[in-house]
Write a protein that binds this DNA or RNA. Structure first.
Length: 594
RNA sequence: GCCCUCGUAGCUCAGCAGGAUAGAGCAGCCGCCUCCUAAGCGGCAGGUCACAGGUUCAAAUCCUGUCGAGGGCACCA
């Protein structure tokens, strides 16, 4: 509709021999301004030395002329009226019959109503969550999960070929700390007395993994604590007690690797990694999120991709040595400071892996690559983009979406969290407490760059205040009406046929406004997808549900007049289709009964 | 100190590739079930769009500065 109007105005301007750059046609905010508005007269008036309203009048007159010549086609009959308003806007009023014709169309398309081909099959990779497998997902990851999944699903819906990926940080010091934590808990289960390191992972899940090791392998991994303690620098138990928790945990990792030997260390390490990864995978699946790939960081080293990336940077002349380390001159590409890629000890950094990973992504041929990261990683964006530029790639192919933290509130109180101490709310606990639907919906209600207050009490409440139930209830109500019809033995004739004359019976203001809202759905999807803002969907759905509830309260659907009844039922069936499509895109169920 | 994000109604937030009288949900007040689920609907009230400049036909929206909130500035991941 919008593009048809744009073409129409373009034709009129050509006719008037007026040049222009772009024509914007927008939905109006105010019903009194019609359905669509165009500001072209305001934009062009000054250059032409005309008053905006006069120019607008000439454009409208030109359109009328074209219409009289019968050169407008279908659009011509869709425009009921054109007004010149305010400072010089041209307002278009769309005929009601154009809206009514949408009902059979929506019913015919069903789950595909709103689907688009904008992406034209272009390949997009969306990487999201990618939390370190050092513990279960917590509520912070939940937001990235819900948001990333919604963006991916939206892009797919508008025609992109979407590849969802989870980057598994299965290498590095944090994983070593996890392996060591598991082993120490295991030693405790074996009866060894020890002071658990302040920097170790203290969550109960570490005990669980240790218990598995103990149950399946008895004392096979046991080492005398006196041996472990040899040469161990003191831990920092309370701040300022002279200990060093970093040095302490690093020494413990060294002891674990040394005392267990390669094979046994590897086993403990893998047990921890795999147990947690399985848990994360299961957790996300129950949250309605599945991936096309789980990409291992270690595989980048093993396949030689990391070395290859470093080599490419070296060949391009972007590396230099200093203080025994190899640095990437990222400042040449807008970063704040240069970054180390190979450490003094010869090990590559996490950043080097990330360069290799992003290089790999682009080599795999994705037209676009989207990373969903926590906002705490924002400082990381310039250096990754710098690396892509240095490799000769276009950094604009990478889009990094930063998700702000979610702060939980319970009875008005902020819920405190800290990963390391094990004192955090897991995603699993959140799902258990508020349910998958509420969690998925609440997480995407806000723009991702907006700090979010997650009100647990509201998410749990089965009341009108809860926006999820509000939308789901509208869906359930439609089902309920059908149920009623069946119980009363009313035979509904609601198979969609084009030009169904009975639809002309939809004349109430509630019906017209509902039709207009339904017509906006494809635009809402397109806008939400292209701007990567699923919250636009939640706003749209609330509006649609509100229009429906208002209609429900104002009019009876199952009336005696069969024509009117069938027309109304078709309308609410169309509402059900759109509600279901919207909820489905957000990973929320569309129940028939509540 | 430098960088990023944010500041809109009592609260939580939309609106921000400039557009017409700044919207919604909670909370508050007043109404609506002999009728398809009241998990619903209608109405009233509520604003210096943090502040100060600038850009222009037009600024909550763009630019600069100030103040405030959060985050980031590792040879950690």
């Amino acid at each position: 509709m919008q593009s048809e109007l744009q073409n129409l105005i373009a034709t009129a301007l050509d006719e008037l021999k007026i040049g222009y750059d772009a024509i914007t046609v927008e939905r109006t905010k105010d019903q009194n301004h019609g359905d669509f508005a165009c500001n072209i007269a305001l934009v062009l008036a000054k250059g032409l030395g005309l008053k905006p309203r006069d120019l607008a009048a000439r454009i409208v007159a030109s359109i009328e002329l074209i219409r009289e010549r019968g050169q407008l086609g279908a659009v011509g009959s869709h425009i009921a009226r054109m007004d010149i308003a305010g400072p010089g806007f041209i307002n278009f009023h769309i005929a009601e019959h154009a809206y009514r014709a949408l009902v059979p169309e929506i019913l015919r398309q069903g789950p595909d109503y709103g689907r688009a081909k904008l992406g034209a099959g272009r390949r997009v990779q969306v990487e999201f969550v990618s939390a370190n497998p050092t513990g279960p997902l917590h509520v912070g990851h939940g937001r990235g999960a819900a948001y990333g999944a919604a963006v991916a699903d939206l892009l797919e819906y508008v025609g992109f070929d979407v590849h969802r990926e989870y980057y598994v940080n299965d290498a590095g010091r944090q994983m070593d700390i996890l392996g060591t934590s598991v082993w120490l808990r295991y030693l405790e289960l074996c009866g060894e007395a020890l002071d658990f390191p302040s920097n170790g992972y203290k969550g109960d899940y570490v005990w669980d993994i240790a218990a598995t090791l103990h149950r399946e392998h008895g004392d096979a991994y046991r080492v005398d604590m006196d041996q472990v303690r040899v040469g161990l620098p003191p831990d920092e138990v309370t701040p300022g007690d002279g200990g060093d928790k970093e040095a302490h945990i690093d020494a413990l990792i060294g002891q674990a690797k040394h005392l267990l030997g390669d094979n046994r260390w590897r086993y403990v390490f893998e047990l921890g990694l795999n147990t947690i990864l399985d848990d994360i995978r299961d957790d996300l699946a129950q949250f309605g999120i599945t991936y096309q790939a789980w990409f291992s960081e270690r595989s980048l080293t093993e396949s030689g991709a990391v070395n290859r990336a470093v080599e490419r940077l070296r060949e391009a002349g972007h590396l230099y040595e200093q203080a025994g380390a190899l640095w990437f001159r990222s400042t040449a590409f807008g970063d704040e400071k240069d970054r180390v890629v190979v450490r003094e000890n010869g090990q590559t950094t996490y950043f080097a892996s990330d360069i290799a990973y992003h290089m790999d992504k682009l080599e795999r041929g994705f037209d676009r690559v989207i990373d969903v990261w926590g906002a705490d990683h924002h400082g990381y964006v310039p250096r990754v983009k710098a690396a892509l530029s240095a490799l000769g790639d276009d950094p604009r192919r990478l889009d990094v979406l930063l998700v702000q933290f979610a702060v939980l509130y319970r009875s008005g109180e902020k819920v405190q969290m800290s990963t390391r101490s094990g004192d955090f709310v897991t995603l699993r606990e959140l799902r258990k407490e508020v349910g998958r639907d509420a969690a998925r919906y609440f997480y995407v209600m806000r723009r991702c760059e907006q700090h979010m207050d997650f009100d647990l009490d509201l998410a749990k409440s089965q009341s009108a205040d809860n926006p999820v139930y509000y939308v789901q209830y509208a869906h359930a109500r439609v089902a309920s009406v059908l149920q009623q019809a069946a119980e009363r033995g009313i035979a509904l004739e609601v198979r969609p046929t084009p030009d169904d004359p009975r639809l002309a019976r939809l004349v109430e203001s509630h019906e017209i406004s509902l039709l207009k809202t339904l017509a906006r759905w494809p635009e809402a999807v397109e806008s939400a997808a292209l701007s990567e803002e699923p919250h636009q969907l939640t706003h749209y759905l609330r509006e649609l549900a509100n229009d429906f509830h208002t209609y429900y309260n104002a009019h009876q659907f199952l009336v005696d007049d069969a024509e009117l009844r069938d027309a109304r039922v078709q309308l609410i069936l169309a509402v059900r289709v759109v509600l279901a499509n919207g909820l489905n895109l957000l990973g929320v169920s569309a129940p028939d009964r509540m």
